[in-house]
Design a protein around this nucleic acid. Structure first.
Lengths: 159, 159
DNA sequence: GTAAACTAGTTACAAATGAAACCAATGTCA
DNA sequence: TGACATTGGTTTCATTTGTAACTAGTTTAC
């Protein structure tokens, strides 16, 4: 029984809530897999994925493309460097930054983990029809844009 | 340029990644709004939302329905109790648990925040067509189920 | 040329989080 | 009945996270 006569919010069908719950489960499942099979976390994996896709980037570029806070990137890079998965090359023209890329070891990890990630995704989204998948992507796009705007303008709610 | 000839994962179109990014932005926007306007966090809001919807629940029930870890529920309940937003009534039949419900203050908060939350959701999902929204919900459902299964079985990746 | 403003990245600190230990109460089963 | 396992909930502890301060390097404006 609900204890108020006015507006009642049904949380179970409230989209922002459902989205966040789904993402958190996906994230858990993913983290668990990467951790148990490769001994790295999601942040590290994202760095590897970016470098695997684009070859060479600065930490800043990685952060921008992967939507990660710069401290997170910094720590992920430090860890991956310690694990010899990354090569760091100084930029002669701007000594503040460095060019990062996958070392042979890192590349190996990437080549083994990327198809696995794809397979995991397949397990989660595999039985979705392609129409639904397309719609899903459209919605993700608009929501991402809207939420990003709301998140960093700190916009007030309408009354 | 990519630095490997084999399989390349395009992170920007990788669904689990996009889902998690979208959710994190939604979560940020939401948290910011609740925090600035009501001085509570997402966990606290979820507790309030559950109680607003269902009236009276134990901490355990709240955790189960809202997908929150029991320590998180415990802390949220403690905070809300300190803020006089919750009423706690002992269960005579099982003194380990207690029945929680919204106090008059808590109910006020709920009645003011629930429509705001709805409005915020509207801002994020408002321009989505109802077909896309339906598809989106279908996908969320299947993904939630699949990810939950993967997350707690600790299933291995296929090779 | 140089002082002030700015930027890439790291570090220090504080808050949030989850796993595990814990406490009190309840259930089980001999 | 009484030992043992289990459960609701809290607390402790170690880890993760983000904010803010900081360092080193670069750009801008005079």
């Amino acid at each position: 029984m609900s204890n108020n006569e006015g507006f009642v919010l049904r949380l179970e069908s409230f989209l922002p809530y459902r989205l966040v719950v789904a993402a958190s489960l996906v994230s858990q499942a993913t983290a668990r897999t990467y951790a148990t099979k490769y001994g790295i976390g999601i942040a590290e994996w994202r760095v590897i994925a970016q470098l695997g896709e684009f070859g060479t980037m600065t930490a800043k570029q990685i952060g921008a493309r992967s939507h990660m806070h710069k401290t997170k990137v910094s720590r992920a890079v430090a860890l991956l460097t310690k694990k010899k998965m990354l090569a760091k090359r100084a930029n002669r023209d701007d000594k503040r930054e460095a060019f990062l890329s996958l070392s042979p070891v890192g590349l190996e990890v990437y080549e083994s983990i990327a198809p696995s990630a794809q397979a995991l995704s397949q397990r989660m989204f595999g039985e979705v029809s392609s129409e639904d998948r397309a719609a899903f992507e459209r919605v993700l796009d608009t929501v991402t844009a809207r939420a990003a705007a709301l998140a960093d303008t700190g916009a007030e709610l309408p009354d």
